[in-house]
Nucleic acid binder design. Structure first.
Lengths: 338, 338
DNA sequence: CTGAAAGCGCTTACAG
DNA sequence: CTGAAAGCGCTTACAG
């Protein structure tokens, strides 16, 4: 048989399972895949044979024969800031039970790296794609369109509404932040952002718009730093901003780690939060509920985004659902720092 | 040609590249893979043809034909506690340039889930495996041994020294923690651990051993909680322990997030750190350098573990290196909390 | 240094 | 409901 040549993998094949079960390989294949048309008795016979031999489908052979991978590719801009871990876990939970492998690509906030990942992963003929936001190279856009692979975008809402997306309005979140600070009686407000991805920028837009409408927008109070977000950076930016503009009385941080750093630094500087300055975070990261003072933040539906995006993709694959735009909203969690 | 049938993937194939370049598919294959024996002129011709057509190798076909995947599987117990992100990134950096795909499996600290992942991923015929620690089911052990796939274990050192491993001695780290606290003049010491994976347990052993030798080990001062590690849990455990044993004067936490929680809670309780209680963390997570007071912690070589493990695996694949045990050590970072 | 033949382990039409 | 034939797109020996 085939097993003689050194090219065989050594693992049991479908043909061997079929032999044991006394059926043809095609029937064995159908039985294992749960194709309806197989006699129940044969199904159990095949399943037993497979179990006995410890048979596991060779994914390469399956993908080659069916011209379809059994994977869904998820592309995220980062793994290190914890933000994308929760969607990732939720995606796994939805997709794994359906027999779909989840391939994770991290492009480190670099559109060129994302384009490479898209090119590479498309070779795997994935069933679907889960992407972050809408900001990518033209080449990447073309690759995606040409591939025809169903996809859902996460974290941002499609402005046009034509591409399936699951997330919330970053702009509205920024606006809500400004309104909350204004409602707390603060007047001299700044936005402190790092990384400066499209979402942080959109929140800044929303924030500014409200301030402008309230007649208290001061561009010199904004701090936009392209460096990765971190506790240390938050502390540094807080100190610098305060030295420069001691009259500031409210700060919106684009991520909780920055805000936590500001809280630490304020304590070192002897600046009372929120008495002298209100501090508002974003994302409500683990730990923010326990800082001193407890951080007021905007909770984002990260796990829900992953879950819904995966579910929507599944619907698209089955032809059950239409491309839609799912707005999951956000929630301001009021604690002690504003 | 083949392209007529609906079974084709629609993407350009090696054969088409070969046609364009005026060579046989085999030569095209060799040229693209960088097999030495191809005439330089043909190599460039093939590469140009491939570029022109936008050819990307079909990984399924390649894996099937070569009875070898081009992936390395990395299995980690968690993604959410940030600990395993750095090794993962480092592994990517080493393996991707070599054309190896990195498949990530997260088993959520569940050996049964790890066993399933091993079974599944082995079907991909990975070139190598990167595993976390040595604690797994017997079935998993057998699968690994039977597969013959080269592997390197991370984070712990192989006690026997026969299996390749890269990490540091968890036991020694625990002992170092105890010595540091003792050297600071503390006598009433406890170990606060969560998750209770084998590594946290090993650190506890090392910690206890030193205390015992110093004649001040008190088992009732240890807090071992199987829940996931978090800032909130650290705060809770700190408060409870303090209510129960107000005389405690030094605490070693199995992870920095717990220690950070304790710092917050101490502040709320008005307990001076380190004057009344020394707090020692573990892992030196981002943020720990900025807490109030700044957290003294034990820095672990997480990125280096990933980098070295991947490098060692590469050596194993090339037959360049022998299985060895690489001890990367750890470093106590003295700040303000002890 | 290059190539014709065969095969990797599945699944897709096509029959019956 | 079941199966024989062909094919997915590569690479492995084997020649020359």
């Amino acid at each position: 048989m085939n097993r003689t040549g050194s090219r065989s993998s050594g693992r049991p094949t479908l043909t061997e399972v079929a032999l044991q079960a006394g059926v043809s390989p095609i029937t064995a294949s159908r039985a294992l895949r749960g194709v309806a048309s197989v006699a129940p008795e044969l199904v159990t016979r095949v399943q037993e044979a497979a179990a006995r031999l410890g048979y596991v489908t060779n994914p390469a052979a399956r993908a080659l024969a069916s011209a379809q991978g059994h994977s869904v590719v998820v592309l995220v801009p980062s793994l290190s800031n914890h933000l994308f871990i929760e969607p990732l876990e939720a995606i796994h939970e939805v997709l794994r039970p359906r027999g779909l492998e989840v391939l994770i690509g991290n492009y480190h906030y670099d559109p060129v790296e994302e384009e490479k990942l898209i090119r590479n992963y498309l070779a795997y003929q994935p069933r679907g794609l889960l992407l972050t936001g809408f900001d990518r190279t033209d080449a990447a856009r073309q690759l995606l369109a040409a591939s025809g692979v169903p996809r859902v975008h996460m974290m941002e809402l499609d402005p046009a509404g034509s591409v399936p997306s699951v997330g919330f309005s970053q702009h509205a979140a920024g606006a809500a932040a400004a309104r909350h600070l204004l409602a707390a009686g603060r007047k001299c407000l700044g936005y402190v952002a790092a990384q400066l991805d499209p979402r942080a920028l959109a929140r800044g837009e929303g924030f500014r718009e409200v301030l402008r409408a309230a007649g208290c927008y001061d561009p010199s109070l904004d701090v936009l730093d392209p460096q990765p977000s971190s506790v240390g950076l938050g502390a540094r930016q807080f100190r610098k901003l305060l030295a420069r503009r001691p009259e500031v009385d409210g700060l919106f941080f684009c991520n909780d780690d920055l805000a936590q750093g500001a809280l630490f630094e304020a304590q070192r500087l002897g600046i009372a939060i929120p008495q002298r300055i209100s501090v508002l975070g974003f994302n409500d990261l683990p730990g923010s509920a326990h800082t001193v003072p407890r951080l007021t933040s905007i909770q984002t539906p990260r796990a829900a985004v992953g879950r819904q995006a995966a579910t929507l993709l599944l619907g698209l694959l089955d032809g059950r659902s239409q491309p839609t735009c799912v707005d999951l909203g956000f929630e301001l969690v009021s604690r002690e720092s504003v």
